[in-house]
């Protein structure tokens, strides 16, 4: 969809910022160059983190028909890289640099039936799709899973609009989602659109593959911002260049390498294209693959990683106490 994704940067004014769930803010923007947001679209914007401009992507939750108001929602994560803190600090009247709605997750009209799967804050990419399917009179089920009720943005609105088409799974209420049951129950001709944490999406992708239904009917979008483990600080070494640098928990390996003066090749910066691939020469610790570029086989082999999103952690159990040695993980790499 390259032609529709040429970025048009513009000013936008914050017109509203309200809490819609624990740590989730709905932020409504008025763009200078309004354009209607299709379901599945997102905007890119610049945040300012300790004086530095950093690009972030947020799904468009809803927009007015003429695009003069565009709503996003931002989770302030405890281990944020700083972008969500900036976003939560925005006040009505503040201005931002944003793109028009961009489309990497198009909803296809005309499938026989649909399953929409939202995990936690991933609901932001799904709300607009569900609304459009409802208005088209399509056959759809909306599945919304989260750890607890107070973390679920838009739940009352979704219940009111979608009624029996909405299935809610809440871990701490004992109704957690079974991915196996979900995928087993999907009509073979249905299309499943999902957005959520990488653990959930990996599990669905594996179950979908095992069931041998049409692989392209599984649609997903990832901004590369969740992993199997919480991010830790680790050390990256590039022997050929004599570089050793720390990758703080709030920064990607790609950014840390760039900070250290390494000229890196990259494109998507969200673990899809594979251009930022680096070779793993040695590893003390374990790899937290956060990309969707490598197959499961390639991730297990751990010979290469996408440094834009993937990280090193001290142990494969994710517990520092299980680490073979003290101190941070150390990753030795070769770069192109």
């Amino acid at each position: 969809m390259a032609a529709t994704n040429i970025e048009v940067w513009q000013r936008a004014t914050v017109v509203e910022s309200v809490l819609v769930a624990a740590n989730i803010r709905r932020i409504v923007l008025a763009p200078a160059l309004p354009k209607r947001a299709e379901p599945g679209s997102h905007i890119d914007l610049y945040t300012t983190i300790t004086g530095e401009r950093q690009k972030r992507s947020y799904s468009v939750v809803d927009s007015t028909e003429d695009g003069t108001r565009v709503a996003i929602s931002v989770l302030q994560a405890p281990l944020s890289r700083g972008g969500s803190i900036f976003m939560h600090g925005l006040q009505p009247g503040d201005t931002l640099e944003i793109t028009q709605p961009l489309q990497n997750f198009p909803l296809r009209v005309g499938a026989p039936s649909y399953v929409l799967l939202a995990g936690g804050i991933g609901v932001t990419a799904i709300v607009n799709m569900a609304r459009v399917l409802k208005s088209l009179g399509a056959s759809y089920t909306l599945v919304y899973a989260a750890r607890s009720r107070e973390r679920m943005a838009y739940l009352p609105e979704l219940l009111a609009l979608h009624g029996d088409n909405l299935r809610v799974h809440i871990d701490d209420e004992g109704s957690e989602l079974s991915v196996a049951d979900l995928v087993a129950g999907v009509d073979p001709a249905a299309e499943l659109y999902m957005c959520g944490p990488i653990r959930l999406m990996d599990a669905v992708r594996r179950a979908w593959r095992d069931r041998e239904v049409n692989e392209t009917n599984l649609r997903f979008e990832t901004f590369g911002n969740s992993g199997w483990y919480d991010p830790e600080e680790f050390i990256v070494r590039v022997p050929r260049l004599g570089v050793e640098t720390r990758v703080p928990a709030g920064r990607s390996m790609l950014e840390a390498l760039e900070d250290a003066g390494v000229e890196m090749m990259f494109d998507c910066r969200k673990g899809e294209c594979g251009l930022c691939e680096v070779k793993v020469l040695a590893l003390e610790g374990a790899i937290d693959h956060r990309d969707v570029f490598y197959s499961e086989r390639q991730q297990h082999a751990a010979e290469k990683i996408c440094c834009c999103v993937s990280r090193a952690v001290t142990s494969a159990t994710g517990l520092q106490a299980d680490a073979a040695r003290g101190g941070p993980a150390i990753l030795t790499i070769g770069v192109s």
Binding site: M1, T216, T222, E272, C273, V292, F293, Y294
Partner: peptide, 9 residues
């Protein structure tokens, strides 16, 4: 490559 870029449409 072994996987398909999810945005490839």
């Amino acid at each position: 490559q072994e996987t398909i870029n999810p945005s490839a449409t």
